[in-house]
Design a protein around this nucleic acid. Structure first.
Lengths: 231, 231
DNA sequence: AGTCACTCCTGAACACGTTCAAAAACCTCC
DNA sequence: GGAGGTTTTTGAACGTGTTCAGGAGTGACT
């Protein structure tokens, strides 16, 4: 080391950031599979073992990518939520914003999301490690619902954010598989399904729908959320 | 080789089956990750290279699992479809049968769904290579719907099998992530959501629902199925 | 029998993700 | 400034999926 700069910041953080930045650059450069831990280490000027000191596995490096996207999405959503008032417009705006942000990464998306579907991976959207990011996303959708004047079965309201999150996962799954130019098919899917959601929410007030909604909400409460500790 | 049996059947097929059987046994035994190609080869009494002569990769062994499960499921479904007449009972029976068959392999379910989310893998349920298995599964669900006397919006009927297939994918996703003993939570999910589906199908006849159904069916037709060639 | 072509099979070798014992650097307190 | 302890860094080594140059078996035709 031939620099005399009086670095007062923690060396540790600098190394960690250096490794993560290098990794994300190589991921974007050559894709996930073709990026090796040795390559990341060499490019960053550290040893392989050092990369593993900061990141438990190659997959854990991708977590940084997710965090970055989440943060950008929350920001972009705020702009939408501050201007739109109708449920449909709010939902469409928020999901469109996600697509806008994720588009540059679409060609590497498959490699990233491949691991996301593995329940044993910490990158799974259902994993405990992803809980903060998940809560964040659901929080945005809660704002989408609660900030609108949409009328609905009052029993539906508390669980609507979770249901919308499931809907969002479906959109993302479609997006990952979407081979059309600029993922225009996903845009079309959004354009056409958001109004469907909107109308379905409205219909939840119908008397015939009430018991159906009540049971659906109950199922979500009983089986979707209360993940048992299981340790 | 110390056996003098005059094997007249094609040696090739026997070896292939031997390797696949051994692999599936080890998968069920110790799970996907902890099963090694060397282990499969040793256990089957062949060389590693030989396993690769018949299967392009470790993942391709999973395709064998996929095919076998599909076949068993079609058989088991037939029994259900021959005895049950109500839509709910038929759907529940068919999906229960799937769970019955898949239970021994729950441990390597993660691998199963990893492929589902990787659009580049030929093992993805959405890939052209999986088309036959997919058609088979949708065919069973078409029988589920058409063989029942359930009344519904006539516009819904032709697309109901595809929609039920999506529902089934959701159940499988939940199952893969289900950590409860014997996956009883997935059973509970089935017990409670099948009646919901059943009632929702019935409600499709309501006048207020018609335009919603029509648009949903149209979306499925336009965006879900017609995968462009893109080669 | 000899030759040719083809299918089936072998195991050493390669690149990768990951681990680990030990070294180096850093810090704190005397 | 030195002793002791903690944090950070190293790189060889391990087990894995996969490849590949070639060997063995098999059958057909001369």
């Amino acid at each position: 080391m031939a620099d005399g700069a009086p670095t007062t910041a923690r060396k540790s953080d600098a190394t960690r950031t250096l490794i993560l930045d290098t990794a994300l650059r190589l991921f974007a450069d050559r894709g996930y599979e073709r990026t090796t831990m040795r390559g990341v280490a060499t490019e960053a000027g550290v040893s392989v073992g050092n990369a593993y000191y900061y990141f438990d596995s190659k997959e854990h490096l991708v977590q940084g990518f997710y965090d970055r996207i989440s943060e950008l999405h929350v920001q972009a959503s705020r702009a939408v939520l501050d201007t739109e008032t109708e449920l449909g417009a709010r939902l469409h705006g928020v999901l469109s914003a996600w697509l806008d942000i994720a588009t540059p990464y679409h060609r590497f998306g498959p490699q990233f999301f491949r691991n996301a579907a593995n329940p044993e991976s910490p990158l799974s959207p259902f994993s405990p490690e992803s809980a903060p990011a998940r809560e964040l996303a659901i929080g945005v959708l809660r704002e989408v619902a609660d900030g609108s004047a949409a009328k609905m079965d009052p029993k539906l309201r508390p669980e609507l954010p979770e249901l919308l999150w499931i809907y969002q996962m479906g959109i993302v799954l479609y997006w990952v598989h979407d081979r059309s130019a600029g993922q225009r098919r996903t845009r079309a899917l959004l354009d056409r399904t958001v109004p469907l959601i909107d109308r379905a929410v409205g219909l939840s007030r119908l008397r015939v729908m009430r018991p159906l909604i009540a049971e659906a909400v109950s199922v979500v409460n009983d089986l979707l959320y209360p993940e048992p500790p299981a340790h």
